[in-house]
């Protein structure tokens, strides 16, 4: 029995297999419509995340399975003070697989250490969000056809942005990948991420200039400055509009650059860009559901 807590638990070979299954699901959805008949997914969402929860639920329904769960801590036994370990042990008796979102970092790991069924980390605080990374990777795979020889720009909140950290971890395993970190100084990429890149000889640059970096990028990964990651409302208000992508700023961008965003967006990508062929963020949403389907099949060991 395996869980997925951190994207690096998947080797590049396993990832390739998962991408192949995902592409097959897109090509032949009917083939997969009853793969999980009689199976149940528990979505344990201790903090609200409509998008991720619906994506997991849609994935399970499209595989023929069923879903049970809760969408906020108040409607769970956690409100009565139950530990994550006990919740996982209990839910393991009801469901075949668990998807857990929790505001505390490491909670899904604790669940996986105590559960009799596989646990998927659906986001733990500012730490990991591996299924978002799977969505990102399928999008890059479908748009670019490769993971090597890419220059990837990350823009916005690179300090608290867990999707950024996970995607860097996944992409740095491929040859000749360069990173450009574009952020205000308060939201710079953490030192430990840079230390790892330096140690592994991976090229990266840091800048505060979005427009000036644009021409080099094959992929631009935009992020939201998230209110819930700040302790201080003033800091949030001061920084939230720092980097807004507009059609003017795309003037120097490559014609085949892909714009990604984990969504939801607030205002960091102008809606005027939504019809630009380079905008891939709604494709990412679709790809996220497909990768969750592929992951559920893998963890349930359904052929």
């Amino acid at each position: 029995m395996r869980s997925l807590i951190d994207i690096l638990e998947l080797s590049t070979t396993e990832l390739e297999k998962l991408l192949a299954v995902a592409c097959d699901i897109i090509e032949n959805p009917q083939k997969y419509a009853h793969k999980c008949d009689g199976k149940k997914l528990a979505t344990l969402f201790f903090e609200p995340s409509t998008r991720t929860r619906l994506s997991f639920e849609a994935a399970m329904y499209e595989l023929g399975g069923n879903v049970l769960g809760f969408s906020e801590a108040n409607s769970s036994s956690a409100a009565k003070g139950e530990s994550v370990a006990d919740t996982a042990k209990t839910v393991g008796c009801y469901a075949d697989i668990i998807a857990m979102r929790h505001p505390k970092e490491g909670a899904p790991l604790v669940a996986s250490m105590n559960s009799s069924v596989p646990v998927i980390n659906a986001g733990d605080g500012g730490h990991n969000h591996p299924t978002q990374t799977l969505a990102d990777l399928l999008t890059i795979h479908r748009e670019k056809g490769r993971f090597d020889n890419l220059t990837v720009g990350f823009c916005g909140d690179l300090k608290f942005g867990r999707t950024v950290h996970s995607l860097i971890s996944a992409l740095k395993r491929y040859k000749n990948v360069k990173f450009v970190f574009i952020s205000p100084s308060e939201l710079k990429i953490p030192d430990y991420v840079k230390e790892t890149l330096t140690k592994e000889g991976i090229k990266y640059t840091e800048t505060t200039d979005l427009e000036g970096s644009m021409a080099d990028l094959d992929i631009l990964y935009m992020t939201r400055v998230q209110r819930e990651r700040f302790f201080n409302e003033e800091d949030y208000l001061r920084l939230k509009d720092s980097y807004i992508l507009t059609p003017e700023k795309l003037a120097n961008a490559k014609e085949d650059m892909s714009i990604l965003h984990p969504l939801p967006r607030v205002n960091e990508i102008s809606v005027a860009i939504d019809n630009d062929p380079r905008a891939c963020y709604f494709k990412q949403v679709f790809n996220g559901k497909i990768m969750r389907m592929a992951l559920i099949l893998k963890l349930l060991e359904v052929e």
């Binding site: 530990s83 994550v84 370990a85 929790h102 505390k104 970092e105 490491g106 909670a107 790991l109 604790v110 733990d124 605080g125 730490h127």
Partner: peptide, 27 residues
């Protein structure tokens, strides 16, 4: 999570031997 769930053991693992860096198992 180890800050709120009192019964959890506090576990750190060796992340970087050369620089003697330990990291929390959970976060």
């Amino acid at each position: 999570i180890s800050m709120t769930e009192q019964e959890l053991p506090h576990i750190f693992t060796l992340a970087d031997k050369e620089n003697r860096v330990y990291r929390c198992l959970y976060c």
